[in-house]
Amino acid sequence: MTTRNIQFKIYRYDPDKDAKPYMQDISVDIDATDRKLLDVMVKLKAKDDSIAFRRSCREGVCGSDALNINGKNGLACLTAIDSLPIDKPIVLRPLPGLPVIRDLIVDMTQFFKQYHSIKPYLINNDPPPERERLQSPEDREELNGLYECILCACCSTSCPSFWWNPDKFVGPAGLLAAYRFIADTRDQATSERLDDLDDPYRLFRCHTIMNCVDVCPKGLNPTKAIGKIKDMMVKRAI
């Protein structure tokens, strides 16, 4: 089987022993069975077991292995190794804008805090019926492009507004989730949800930079969802 050598520059930082972060140069031989970046990273880890990164499903649904790959956020398991230029080393860094715990692993507390802040659950105070609540296929269609989010944080950590105000701006992932519930005909808390977001920081830090759309590995469009929230607010206000 033909093999080739792939060069990497990897962000390394272990607070247990490193005074400050550094970039490690490392290379590995790959063969035709190593199709995705994650396959190659697993090989790298076999070579140097101290390289720390998260991974789980290796098929793009769990959202564990989000990284900054050659300067752009993405999932290692969905990034084809052939899609990366091989004339220079592949640069792997942790997601930007969040504190680094170690190597490629970031502390996602702030990200999830924002997700939790939008009350990410269905609110319906009617007594639950015996059977399912009815919803027309058209109404259900409204949730497409919203519920598929895997909470990988590629979007929020590529958003400059989130970089500047991670504590106050909900960020694209959280706002996408917020609209998922606003758009759900079974949810009864629409006006509370809109009230909660009517704030110069929580929603209106979005300046439609659209990095979120550019990086989303699931092809979702948080900016569009944010636009729809604003539309609803305007409609409500005038």
């Binding site: 106050k168 009230d195 909660d196 977001l197 009517d198 704030d199 110069p200 920081y201 929580r202 929603l203 209106f204 604003k230 607010m233 305007v234 206000a237």
Partner: peptide, 11 residues
């Protein structure tokens, strides 16, 4: 957070 002037200024 919750200053409630976001929409007005944005609009």
């Amino acid at each position: 957070v919750g200053a409630h002037y976001g929409l007005k200024d944005w609009l």
